[in-house]
């Protein structure tokens, strides 16, 4: 990859936007990339809109400023549609992935995108995580959807690294690890694009 890729994650406090950015970065680093993952910090509280970011590159990354025009955007909460401008700065060749039960065709008119060439993907990450993990925690399935929509990483590399990281975190709960991996895989398969 010649260019530096930038991803912006939008979620609500508790949905795992920060963790998604960290896991994504770790997986990319394990695949030999240079990475950054950083959250936007404010007064943290459950349910409040939060953002986090990734930079991924083959070269060392020196930038330490905010991400202004990310090519890739992951929206973990469909209630942001019409309330938060998650399309800000997205270039014409950008990709937006939204956690919703609606199709991309149903979603597009609601977004008022400045360019028709911005690609739109949707996936029911809440439904998938409910079925695989037992609660609506959309971050890991959104990683799978984002990888499918953007090709920023190889699915198997993401699964392998996420497995290692989650096994460390949930030593005594193997079912959580399995559920998350299944969620990533299902979202990868089920995400729809246009």
């Amino acid at each position: 990859m010649a260019e530096m890729l930038e991803i912006r994650w939008h979620g609500r406090g508790g949905q795992g936007a920060k963790t998604a950015a960290l896991l994504m970065a770790e997986a990319a680093a394990a695949a030999g990339k240079h990475i950054q993952a950083f959250p936007e910090y404010g007064p943290e509280r459950m349910g409040a809109p939060v953002a986090s970011y990734n930079r991924i590159s083959d070269e060392p990354i020196r930038l330490h400023c905010g991400v202004e025009s990310p090519r890739y955007v992951a929206v973990l909460d469909a209630t942001f549609v019409g309330t938060i401008d998650f399309t800000a700065g997205v270039p014409d060749d950008g990709v937006i992935v939204i956690n919703t039960t609606e199709s991309p065709a149903e979603m597009r008119p609601k977004l008022g995108l400045k360019s028709d060439s911005i690609r739109l993907y949707t996936v029911d990450a809440n439904g998938i995580s409910q079925e695989t993990i037992g609660r609506a925690i959309p971050n890991t399935p959104m990683m799978g959807a984002l990888v499918k929509a953007t090709g920023v990483l190889d699915l198997e590399e993401l699964l392998e690294d996420t497995k290692q990281k989650l096994e460390k975190k949930f030593r005594n709960k193997p079912e959580i690890v399995e559920g998350n991996l299944e969620a990533i895989r299902r979202a990868y398969e089920e995400v729809q694009g246009e």
Partner: peptide, 12 residues
Amino acid sequence: TDGFIISHGMEV
């Protein structure tokens, strides 16, 4: 280190 920019940012 610079607070949040480095302290909470993940790098290689």
